[in-house]
Design a protein around this nucleic acid. Structure first.
Length: 570
RNA sequence: GCCCUCGUAGCUCAGCGGAUAGAGCACCGGCCUCCGGAGCCGGGUGCGCAGGUUCGAGUCCUGCCGAGGGCGCCA
């Protein structure tokens, strides 16, 4: 399977528990907590169902953590889902199930009950959360919440790829943060990820850029179709080459690209490969690709042009590959590029992150890829909704845009990144820069980072007071019974699942949401539970210090996945 | 005209077909002799509209309304 449709889907189809670190830890000799509660509950439910005459495996049993505490710690809708198979009413199945489970409850379970239309709710002793804490600490920042979902599949994430005709604007930064965070998340979950920036350094726009620069150098007006931004004038002053649009264009593009790279780098975004479109054209791969398509029988000639019969692959109309003047179209170059990705460099999967304004390219690109003999399912195109700016659209040609570098200077890199990582890229966003500036102090990133800094501060205070943590193996966690403490541990128990969902759904914002929740619950814990004080028993201090350490690990993992700093102080 | 995406609280956004739809911001009140108050606690309004699918729909399907984007021998 190339791509798991969903984490749940994998489990059901695979008939096995998700490949989390829990299993690997079992192999490293931690039998006591080698298996977390979730799979144990699944097994117990499946066994009970089977004994009731309903064929079921653990993979059939969907377990979730209910929203409401009164619904217990874990819940399953198995009775609802399987009632038809059982030929009984859901509640009837649920009641039998509960009776059976109560006869010999799984470890940690203190009660099983039927609720609502047929949910089966489990109440657990806090001990299950102590296992979570030990798990987090043992696995640490490196390994906790790093399920192997990708199995080493080679995936390329191409993102930003802004034309080198002007500085990157906030819209580019938006998708840049997204693509980079996605790459980080997929790397953690077992994919072999390569980040790529496609440099569109050919064609009319390069000549247009060169012409704009030359016009500026002569002190003339830039033509209507040219690039009017101030940066062109600045570049014109640096250019001492000949009056040649090609050369001037290349000069400008090189300078601009260096600037783009610098800006993205200041956001923590680095690419493995910067791929030049010009290099593809010069290598002859475009003609070669058209030739291959012709050999495969998907090309025809008409009106002096060369066409791809893309309608054969679901496109709304056929597309021109080579214009009647002999110049290849953008699509031809793009297909040569994608042939290179799949067939020359051997990526199993390619994710192109594009703005919704590229929507029109999707059908023909997919059709062309399929015509080349590549399963189009391997090409995944994530269209992000455009970022508009208080009603006006950003455009490099008009010079009307907000430079990403300006936003970074205003907000700082972390807040800038979080701006786009708090919501799905499917969400169309209108940025009001005044509001953004005003709210920058309330950016959620500071709330999360504050929790991390606070933990570092606790460590400093502990050191001052000569309190050091004892090895976790020798520490009893039973003193952790406060609702605030248990809530933090529940959050931590969710992280592997959250990371998996974020990877499979290509949705980094899920990590952000989880971080906000953990930070909130940690702040609550911190407020209500003194860690080191005269009235606090030594054992409680020990346990709480480990709770704090586990929280730090969780925060560090989440922040790293978003590419945001985890500061020791603020 | 056709196609795609999106419509959830005043604003920015969450919500694997499940139980009483949640956060943040804004607004109003509380809480520091304290390990960092960039914090904690309390306060209320909402699924664009109409059908359908089913035990159950914010979630899936159809139509309508609204917003953005796309439908080049441009890139």
């Amino acid at each position: 399977m190339l791509y798991p449709l969903s984490y749940e889907g994998r489990r059901r189809r695979g008939g096995e528990t998700p490949p989390t670190r829990f299993e690997s830890s079992a192999g490293r000799g931690h039998p006591h907590w080698a298996m977390t509660v979730q799979p144990r509950l699944g097994e117990a439910v499946a066994t009970a169902l089977t004994r009731l005459g309903v064929e079921a495996t653990a993979a059939d049993v969907h377990l979730e953590r209910p929203q409401r505490p009164e619904h217990g710690d874990w819940s399953t809708n198995a009775a609802l889902v399987l009632s038809r198979r059982a030929g009984k009413q859901p509640r009837e199945v649920a009641i039998s199930l509960v009776e059976m489970l109560n006869e010999a409850p799984p470890e940690h379970v203190t009660g099983v009950e039927v609720a609502g239309p047929g949910f089966v709710n489990f109440r657990l002793a806090p001990t299950w959360l102590y296992e979570v804490l030990r798990e987090v600490v043992a696995e640490g920042e490196e390994h906790y919440a790093s399920p192997d979902l990708g199995h080493g599949e080679k995936v390329q994430v191409e993102f930003v790829s802004a034309n080198p005709t002007g500085p990157v604007h906030v819209g580019n930064g938006w998708f840049g943060s997204y693509g980079d965070a996605l790459a980080r998340i997929m790397s953690r979950t077992g994919w072999d990820v390569s980040r790529e920036y496609y440099v569109n350094d050919t064609g009319n726009q390069m000549r247009e850029l060169g012409a704009s620069l030359l016009a500026r150098r002569r002190g003339e007006e830039v033509s209507e179709s040219g690039y009017k931004g101030e940066y062109v004038a600045e570049l014109a002053q640096q250019y001492d080459g000949p009056d040649d649009v090609e050369q001037a264009g290349r000069f400008a593009a090189d300078k601009i690209l260096a600037e783009i790279r610098k800006t993205l780098s200041s956001l923590g975004i680095e690419f493995d490969v910067w791929y030049s479109q010009a290099s593809i054209e010069e290598s002859g791969r475009v003609e070669e690709t058209v030739g291959i398509l012709r050999e495969r029988g998907h090309v025809f000639d008409s009106d002096g042009a060369v066409w791809l019969r893309s309608t054969a692959f679901g496109d709304a109309r056929d597309r021109v590959l080579i214009r009647s003047d002999g110049v290849p179209t953008y699509l031809a170059g793009d297909l040569a590029y994608h042939r290179n990705k799949f067939l020359e460099r051997g990526f199993d999967r390619v994710i192109d992150v594009l703005g919704a304004d590229h929507h029109g390219q999707v059908a023909s690109l997919k059709a062309g890829v399929e015509a080349l003999g590549v399963d189009p399912e391997r090409l995944e195109i994530r269209l992000g909704q455009l970022i508009s700016l208080v009603g006006e659209r950003m455009s490099k040609r008009s010079g009307h845009y907000v430079a990403l570098s300006t936003l970074i200077e205003t907000l700082g890199p972390d807040a800038t990144r979080l701006l786009s990582l708090t919501s799905s890229i499917d969400q169309a966003t209108t940025l009001d820069l005044d509001v953004v500036r005003k709210q920058s102090a309330e950016n959620p990133v500071f709330y999360i980072q504050y929790a991390h800094a606070r933990i570092a501060s606790i460590g400093r205070v502990a050191a001052e007071r000569g309190i050091s943590r004892q090895p976790l193996d020798s520490v009893e966690l039973d003193p952790l019974v406060h609702p605030r403490e248990l809530q933090v541990l529940r959050d931590l128990s969710d992280l592997p699942r959250v990371v998996a969902d974020a990877a499979v759904d290509r949705a980094p914002f899920k990590v952000t949401n989880w971080l906000r929740g953990l930070a909130a619950d940690f702040h609550g814990f911190y407020h209500d539970c003194r860690i080191m004080d005269e009235g606090i028993a030594e054992e409680l201090t020990e346990a709480r210090l480990w709770l704090v350490e586990a929280t730090r690990i969780g925060l560090a993992i989440g922040l790293a996945l978003l590419g945001v700093q985890a500061p020791e102080s603020m």
